[in-house]
Design a protein around this nucleic acid. Structure first.
Lengths: 332, 332
DNA sequence: CTGTTAGCGCGTTCAC
DNA sequence: GTGAACGCGCTAACAG
């Protein structure tokens, strides 16, 4: 194999020659080994490994029309909600021998469109997470390639939704059990599907348990937003709050601590998304996000659709639940 | 164009026929328009648009060897150190019109090898972050494709290194200024390049400032590890600690709080990597990680190498600095 | 079971 | 300035 050493990258022809067979046989050794003598396969694989030969993905795609690639688009990779989802999606795709392109739309619909155009000719399917595109654009893309959505509800397009309402209801029930009567909901982005869902769940549950609820106006969810909102919380005389997400909740914790208000003794707090784990002190009671499951399910749904194993308008809803840790207690 | 309507996707041949030219001419209209009559180009482009024709990425790649793709491999997408890096890398690649494949090696060298094999035939370059591969394997891959490293120092392979030693030195100086004499270093993984670097920096600085240093034995860095280590910290009678990373530091904060030990009044603490921002209470004094810059620089380095604009053994070092927040104070 | 032939869609020599 | 022919590496008929 002195000749093999010279080349950095080999083709099927090289392997075929060395094995004394035709290219087709080498091809079959990789794609349909059962149609070959076990011995032949073994010999070919051995030589391929010696050569460091790997089938050329691109050539295969050109010939079969199957690229074995998926595109995963998210609005912000660095938002702690996404990494577990991305990780799960990537690993799920991996088990099906798919490669995944990652795109960061940076919360911008135009950028998202641009990335899709860039990916489209080399992927078999698109998975959009928290897409900022409108329904029309999404349907346009869905017509070009199998497409699935996570965290966006567009009728006719297969989608995975995380129903935080169930978890928020649990949280309200939990607070009611503890004896809270006046609670606040600290809003997230105004046009966010998740925010509407959570706010409504809070309102409904409040009515059910006969609690009054103060809605703190929408803002971009962040640690700083949470801190900034503390004075309003204090002024409104509520004894507990449900925050749009954990980052906001953490900001609230800091703001309270700075004013000498102890959580949960003087004030109870519930977050959403469970992105912090137990890693605060006191550890945050929050609503599970199941983003990793959503990522996994999204990829699986997409693959099923690509195989025609699933209807095009599947709507998969993951419910959530409350994770009780240490930021909730009875009011004073 | 009734015929065009029938097909969902057109080829150069379709456009060529409709324009009454050869395929070559259509090809040139897209890649070297200046070699054609302006009029010809215009006519072809017009027809292409009518057809909704887009050059086939895959076929072009097969023919030219240029895919316009990069592979980004990380050991764990969900580790908070990586997302900002991934985000920056993705966006940097985007400005150069490159698509990026994301791979999650899951801390496993074999998986990393497997992913590389899967990507290799459709990328022009590889960027490995915190690779678990040994130098030999890396050099093998580097021979097949342009390859750059982040956070791993393999001579002869272009690499971007985050030098946390500078920041750790700052931290030690800061603690010395505050009057600490006995400090601890809470180790990270034994075989970690970053851990060795940080531990050595602590030791050297301790000597310089005439401090004693207690090395808490290596462990997988995590919140739980940090909590578990608190008894040792207390027993060793140190007044301050430098932790391998922020997660560990946060665990220590919790462990201390659970024992009624106030930070920074009774104990000073410094983290590493700055993955939490100001989002703890009290907010953590830590060493900046600059992972986003590393991601950006890594992609740029890789692109430069692919263009032959940069020597193959470039070694780019990013220094770090201390971010003083609220977990350090003079000892009692 | 295995070899032969013919493309997949495009870029790229060569001629003209 | 433009066209014809070949090849990128592989898979998919079709033979044998």
């Amino acid at each position: 194999m002195s000749e093999a050493d010279k080349k950095l990258t080999h083709t099927m022809a090289d392997v075929a020659k060395a094995a004394g067979v035709s290219k087709s046989t080498v091809s079959r050794a990789f794609t349909q080994p059962y149609r070959l003598t076990a011995e032949t396969v073994e010999r070919i694989i051995k030589i391929a490994e010696d050569f460091g030969y790997v089938p050329n993905h691109t050539a295969r795609a050109l010939s079969t029309g199957r690229h074995g690639n998926l595109a995963l688009l998210v609005s912000d990779v660095a938002n702690p909600f996404f990494p577990p989802l991305i990780r799960a999606a990537q690993m799920e795709a991996d088990t099906a021998d798919f490669c995944v392109f990652l795109g960061n739309s940076d919360e911008d619909a135009r950028q998202e469109d641009k990335l899709i155009d860039r990916f489209i000719s080399q992927v078999e399917g698109l998975l959009l997470v928290s897409s900022r595109l409108n329904a029309e654009r999404i349907q346009v893309h869905a017509r070009r390639r199998p497409l699935a959505l996570i965290n966006l509800d567009v009728p006719g397009v297969p989608r995975v939704l995380i129903d935080s309402a169930t978890g928020v209801r649990d949280a309200m029930s939990h607070l009611a059990d503890l004896g809270h009567k006046r609670i606040a909901y600290v809003s997230g982005p105004q046009n966010s599907w998740a925010n509407r869902q959570r706010r409504n769940a809070v309102r409904l549950a409040a009515r059910k348990y006969d609690m009054t609820v103060e809605i703190i106006s929408p803002a971009i969810p962040s640690y700083d937003t949470g801190r900034a909102v503390v004075p309003q919380l204090i002024e409104s005389k509520v004894t507990a709050a449900v925050a749009f997400d954990d980052l906001t909740a953490q900001g609230i914790m800091t703001g309270m601590a700075e004013r000498g208000i102890e959580i949960p003794r003087h004030f109870s707090l519930v977050g959403c998304d469970d992105v912090l784990g137990a890693a605060t002190y006191p550890s945050l009671t929050t609503v599970s996000n199941r983003s990793d499951e959503a990522g996994r399910a999204g990829v699986r749904l997409l693959l099923d659709i690509m195989d025609g194993r699933m209807a095009g308008d599947t709507r998969l809803v993951l419910d959530t639940h409350l994770v009780v840790r240490h930021t909730t207690a009875p009011p004073l």
